[in-house]
């Protein structure tokens, strides 16, 4: 069972996907293709890659400017839309970096219907520490 399959078990899960830092989708699961199709998911993944990068820069700058800690590294970025939200994370990559690996796993994301979205449950799956090979 992959992390994508686990994400699709979340309440209201509409899609789950893996993507590169440059935004290309590598793997996907889509539950409601009439709402979220491959084309939508491709643009969404590019948006999420950009948002994670900007948020990472802001967290880094914020910690330096204020002296506060606990913002960096970003664990997840969540965009709350009108009907659904998308939660994305690159935290697994941090685990690989800490293990001294240069080849990093992809970013991951899940689209959740707002009515039943459990953001904390999504964070829990995305923050799960997978063994580093």
């Amino acid at each position: 069972m992959t992390t994508l399959d686990d994400l699709m078990k979340l309440p209201g899960a509409m899609a789950a996907f893996e993507f590169r830092g440059s935004g290309e989708v590598l793997e996907q699961r889509i539950a409601y293709p009439d709402r979220i199709n491959e084309s939508t998911l491709d643009l969404l993944a590019h948006m999420c890659a950009a948002n994670l990068s900007i948020a990472t820069m802001q967290a880094r700058g914020w910690e330096k400017v204020t002296g506060m800690e606990g913002f960096y590294p970003i664990q997840e970025f969540t965009l709350i839309g009108f009907d659904w939200s998308v939660v994305v994370s690159g935290l697994q990559r941090e685990h690989y970096k800490q293990a001294g690996k240069f080849s990093l796993p992809p970013f991951m994301g899940v689209v959740l219907a707002n009515e039943s979205a459990d953001y904390e449950a999504a964070f829990g799956i995305l923050e799960r520490k997978e063994p580093v090979p």
């Binding site: 606990g70 913002f71 960096y72 709350i80």
Partner: peptide, 9 residues
């Protein structure tokens, strides 16, 4: 869009 979250450690 309604909003957004940045979740740090």
């Amino acid at each position: 869009p309604r909003g957004w979250l940045v979740h740090g450690p």
